Amino acid sequence: MKTEFIVSDMTCNHCVQTITRAVRDVAPDAAVQIDLAAHRVAIESSADAAVLRAAIAEEGYDVQPG
C-alpha cells in the first residue's frame, strides 16, 4: 500500500535520512521515496499509515496527509 505525507519542516538531507530511518524502524520492508523540494514523503509498505505517521512525528516533524 502506498501512503503519502507532507512534511513541511523537512529541509535538508539530514531530515531525509532521519525520516527514512524512522520509517524503516517500524516497517523494515518499506520503500521510501522523498521529494525534499516538495516536502513529500511516499512510502510503499504494508504497515498502517497511522504507525508510519507516528514514527515520523516522533522525530519532531509536522506530518500531514499527502
Score class of each variant (00 low, 15 high):
residue 6 I to A: 00
residue 58 E to N: 15
residue 65 P to I: 00
residue 37 A to Q: 13
residue 38 A to C: 01
residue 47 A to L: 02
residue 28 P to Q: 07
residue 31 A to P: 03
residue 47 A to M: 02
residue 39 H to L: 02
residue 37 A to T: 11
residue 60 G to C: 02
residue 7 V to H: 03
residue 58 E to D: 15
residue 2 K to W: 10
residue 57 A to W: 02
residue 15 C to S: 04
residue 52 L to V: 00
residue 21 R to W: 12
residue 2 K to D: 04
residue 11 T to V: 09
residue 35 D to N: 15
residue 30 A to G: 10
residue 11 T to L: 14
residue 22 A to P: 06
residue 54 A to F: 01
residue 52 L to Q: 00
residue 52 L to D: 01
residue 17 Q to D: 07
residue 49 A to P: 14
residue 60 G to D: 08
residue 41 V to I: 05
residue 35 D to A: 15
residue 64 Q to N: 10
residue 58 E to W: 08
residue 57 A to M: 06
residue 2 K to G: 05
residue 32 V to C: 14
residue 59 E to C: 04
residue 45 S to I: 01
residue 44 E to I: 13
residue 23 V to F: 01
residue 57 A to I: 06
residue 53 R to P: 00
residue 59 E to M: 06
residue 42 A to S: 12
residue 37 A to V: 12
residue 14 H to L: 10
residue 46 S to E: 13
residue 65 P to E: 15
residue 12 C to I: 05
residue 56 I to C: 12
residue 26 V to F: 09
residue 5 F to C: 05
residue 37 A to D: 14
residue 49 A to T: 10
residue 64 Q to T: 11
residue 23 V to Y: 02
residue 24 R to W: 11
residue 41 V to K: 04
residue 27 A to V: 04
residue 20 T to M: 08
residue 47 A to V: 03
residue 8 S to K: 15
residue 48 D to L: 05
residue 61 Y to C: 06
residue 2 K to S: 10
residue 22 A to L: 10
residue 17 Q to F: 08
residue 41 V to R: 05
residue 52 L to H: 01
residue 7 V to C: 03
residue 26 V to M: 08
residue 65 P to K: 04
residue 19 I to T: 10
residue 52 L to M: 02
residue 35 D to L: 13
residue 6 I to H: 04
residue 41 V to C: 02
residue 48 D to A: 09
residue 16 V to F: 13
residue 36 L to W: 14
residue 24 R to H: 13
residue 12 C to V: 03
residue 62 D to N: 09
residue 44 E to N: 10
residue 17 Q to L: 04
residue 32 V to K: 12
residue 65 P to S: 07
residue 46 S to A: 09
residue 41 V to F: 07
residue 16 V to Q: 12
residue 64 Q to P: 04
residue 35 D to G: 11
residue 9 D to S: 03
residue 8 S to P: 15
residue 26 V to K: 00
residue 65 P to M: 09
residue 21 R to A: 15
residue 57 A to E: 15
residue 58 E to I: 01
residue 33 Q to W: 13
residue 64 Q to V: 05
residue 12 C to S: 04
residue 23 V to C: 02
residue 53 R to T: 05
residue 20 T to Y: 06
residue 20 T to L: 04
residue 33 Q to C: 09
residue 23 V to H: 03
residue 1 M to A: 11
residue 42 A to Q: 14
residue 63 V to Y: 06
residue 36 L to M: 11
residue 65 P to D: 14
residue 27 A to Q: 00
residue 65 P to N: 08
residue 26 V to C: 06
residue 40 R to G: 03
residue 59 E to D: 05
residue 39 H to P: 04
residue 22 A to Q: 11
residue 14 H to T: 12
residue 22 A to G: 12
residue 40 R to V: 12
residue 17 Q to Y: 00
residue 57 A to R: 07
residue 33 Q to T: 13
residue 22 A to R: 09
residue 35 D to H: 14
residue 41 V to A: 09
residue 27 A to H: 00
residue 64 Q to K: 12
residue 28 P to L: 12
residue 50 A to S: 14
residue 48 D to P: 05
residue 14 H to I: 09
